[in-house]
C-alpha cells in the first residue's frame, strides 16, 4: 500500500510533499518514512497519509473570467491620479 509523505523542513514552514513509501500498514509506513525522509535531521515533522485518503482536485471553472475577487481585477492608477488632482495633492512628476 502506498503512503504519501509530507515533510516540514523547519518549525513554522508549510508541509510539502516529499515522496511516498510502500508499506503494509501505518506502523511500517511511519518507520519507513522516518528513515527515508528524516534520517539526517532534515525534517521537523512528517505527515504520513494513505494515498487513498488524498483527493486530487484539478478542475477550477472560471468561464466568465471573474476578476472582482482577485487583485488583477483592480486597476487604481488612473482613478487615483484623478482623485489626487481634484484634491490638489498630485505630486510633481
Amino acid at each position: 500500500m502506498i503512503y504519501e509523505v509530507f515533510r516540514q523542513e523547519k518549525k513554522g514552514a508549510a508541509f510539502a510533499h516529499a515522496g511516498s513509501v510502500d508499506a503494509p500498514d501505518a506502523t511500517f509506513a511511519e518507520a519507513f518514512a522516518r528513515e527515508q525522509y528524516g534520517r539526517r535531521q532534515e525534517s521537523e515533522a512528517l505527515w504520513v497519509v494513505p494515498r487513498a485518503a488524498i483527493h486530487t482536485v484539478t478542475d477550477f471553472a472560471d468561464e466568465l473570467n471573474k476578476t472582482y475577487h482577485r487583485v488583477d481585477g483592480y486597476s487604481l492608477k488612473a482613478k487615483l491620479k484623478e482623485a489626487r488632482e481634484r484634491a490638489g495633492t498630485a505630486r510633481a512628476s
Binding site: 513509501v21 510502500d22 508499506a23 511500517f28 518507520a31 519507513f32 522516518r34 528513515e35 527515508q36 534520517r39
Partner: peptide, 9 residues
C-alpha cells in the same frame, strides 16, 4: 527497499 534504508540506520 524501504526496510533496507530502515535497517541500515
Amino acid at each position: 527497499l524501504e526496510e533496507d534504508v530502515a535497517f541500515s540506520s
